[in-house]
């Protein structure tokens, strides 16, 4: 793991410095988060111009209204939510969509194969491909949920807030995804020669007190 992220405390203090009017904090927030927001926005609307306009407005808004913004311990989450709302509003204004679903019909979250560094086993590779195909068949909104949870590391509550949906939908989607992944997990366990772990685990399930 090469990427080290800010801790919640660091998020809080960076955000507070910014809200107090620290110009440096504003720049740092911009530098840390913009590229990532751009990627998320682009996945949502597939329109560079729109993403850039909304980011422009968003950061201008933050700058102007910094003293009235609420606190957060996850700037990522805060900005994802703000950007998504802005993009939706802009799309609705542009095209007069009546619902989020339609406004985001260009959204495209593509699950891609990850670096298979340990995988030599053909079964393993086939299994991975199947998982990807299954995940990619999910509706866009569900893929967006998985994107926010597994790619961006947002909590279920944060994901629900960003997308304006219930936490239950987030849970359900995660469960659907894990059903696909389960097959993969099983072959992985076998490959790892971790069968004994599996057995041990079954024993554990039946005799939890052992």
């Amino acid at each position: 793991m090469t990427k080290i992220s800010l801790t919640p405390d660091e998020h809080t203090s960076l955000w507070n410095e910014f809200r107090m009017g620290d110009r440096d904090a504003f720049s740092r927030i911009y530098e840390i988060f913009t590229a990532d927001l751009y990627r998320y926005g682009f996945n949502l609307v597939r329109n560079k111009q729109l993403v850039e306009d909304c980011l422009h407005e968003l950061f201008l808004h933050l700058h102007i209204h910094k003293s009235t913004l609420g606190p957060t311990n996850n700037i990522h989450f805060y900005l994802y939510r703000a950007l998504r709302r802005r993009l939706l509003d802009a799309l609705k204004k542009l095209k007069k969509y009546d619902s989020d679903e339609h406004a985001l019909n260009h959204a495209e979250f593509v699950v891609e194969s990850f670096e298979a560094q340990y995988i030599e086993d053909q079964d393993q590779i086939r299994q991975q491909e199947m998982v990807l195909t299954e995940l990619n068949k999910l509706p866009k909104r569900q893929k967006e949920i998985l994107y926010l949870v597994y790619m961006k590391g947002l909590s279920y509550q944060e994901t629900a807030d960003v997308m304006d949906i219930s936490m239950k939908s987030v849970y359900n989607t995660v469960n659907v995804a894990l059903t696909s992944l389960r097959k993969y997990i099983r072959t992985s366990l076998l490959r790892e020669g971790a069968l004994w772990l599996n057995i041990g685990f079954i024993i554990h399930m039946f005799f939890p007190n052992i």
């Binding site: 996945n43 850039e52 998985l146 993969y184």
Partner: peptide, 28 residues
């Protein structure tokens, strides 16, 4: 294994062009 699984859920992301990011920063 769980780490591997979580990281298996990778989404394609278009990397914004350096030029676009710079232009955006300039205008903001």
């Amino acid at each position: 294994l769980a780490l591997e699984c979580v990281r298996a859920i990778q989404f394609a992301e278009a990397e914004p062009a350096e030029d676009d990011l710079l232009a955006l920063k300039r205008r903001i």
